[in-house]
């Protein structure tokens, strides 16, 4: 799921710190974002936009952090509105709903752990590519040189 790959160049201390922060940003946002799913996306989006002119390594990791939030946004938003409809409409708690919540928790936790791990590794200057999101980031984020 997570691959350690060699980046096109050796990132500097400052770059590693900024790249790692992008994951930390999404980490904090996950905590707020579980009940309010849009928060994670906004937080990582702000960080992404703020680092748009940064170096390739920083941009790459900001993009990966942003993309990983997108899928969580779909999962959590659906769960969020489902919960709202149970609380405020005729919808009742079913086994399907509980199963969805558990599946969402599993995916959120996996992402949480992966984010912590990636934040630690990128801080050390190690380049980490996630399954699917890594390849997608390679497609979107290109080196300017």
């Amino acid at each position: 799921m997570i691959h350690i790959k060699k980046f096109s160049y050796e990132p500097g201390e400052h770059e590693a710190e900024a790249a790692s922060s992008s994951y930390l940003m999404s980490l904090i946002a996950i905590i707020v974002g579980v009940p309010l799913p849009i928060v994670n996306l906004i937080a990582t989006l702000i960080f992404y936009l703020g680092n748009k002119k940064s170096t390739y390594f920083v941009r790459w990791h900001c993009t990966q952090a942003l993309l990983s939030q997108l899928s969580m946004l779909f999962i959590n938003s659906f769960g969020f509105w489902w919960t709202i409809s149970i609380l405020f409409t005729d919808e009742t708690i079913t086994s399907r709903y509980i199963a969805y919540v558990i599946a969402a928790i599993i995916f959120n936790l996996t992402e949480f752990v992966a984010t912590i791990y990636t934040a630690i590794q990128t801080r050390k200057g190690i380049h980490i590519e996630w399954w699917f999101y890594g390849s997608l980031t390679n497609l979107i984020c290109r080196s300017k040189s």
Partner: peptide, 23 residues
């Protein structure tokens, strides 16, 4: 393919979990 597999993994997990009577 990887994207589809990720989506499938989520729905698969959900489907598998619905087999349990959580209520």
């Amino acid at each position: 393919l990887q994207g589809l597999m990720t989506i499938l993994l989520f729905f698969g997990t959900w489907y598998a979990l619905t087999q349990i009577d959580w209520i």
